[in-house]
Simulated assay, not measured.
Amino acid sequence: MSATVRAGVRRGMPVFPATVALGVSFGVLAVPLMGVVAPVLMSAIVYAGGSQFAAVGVLAGGGGAFAASGAGLLMNGRFLPMGFAFAPAFRGGRAWRAVQGQAVIDAAMVLGRDEDGTYDRKLLFGISATQFVGWVGGTALGVFAGENLPDPDAFGLDAIFPAFYIALLGSELHRVRARVAAVLAVGVVLAGSAFMPPGVPVVAAAAVALIGLIPERGGGEDSGPEKEETA
Rank of each mutant, 00 (worst) to 15 (best):
L210H: 07
G63C: 08
A145K: 13
E226D: 10
R78P: 08
G35E: 00
V20R: 03
V31Y: 10
M82H: 13
E172M: 12
A107S: 13
P215W: 06
V36N: 04
L157T: 09
D222Q: 05
D151F: 03
A154I: 06
A3H: 06
M42H: 04
N76P: 01
F155G: 13
S2Y: 02
A65V: 09
D153M: 12
F86E: 05
A207S: 12
W135C: 01
V37L: 13
S51N: 07
V36K: 05
F144H: 04
A87C: 02
D222Y: 00
F86M: 08
F53H: 00
A21Q: 02
A207Q: 08
L157N: 07
Q102I: 09
A194G: 04
F155D: 14
F79K: 03
W96N: 09
A181D: 03
S128F: 02
P215C: 06
G92Q: 11
E115R: 11
D114V: 02
G93C: 15
I45T: 11
A181K: 02
V202A: 04
D151K: 05
R91E: 14
W135M: 02
G93D: 15
V110R: 14
P225F: 08
V189D: 07
V208I: 15
D106F: 12
E221G: 12
V36T: 13
F144C: 00
D116P: 00
T118E: 09
D114S: 14
G64L: 09
M75F: 11
P198R: 04
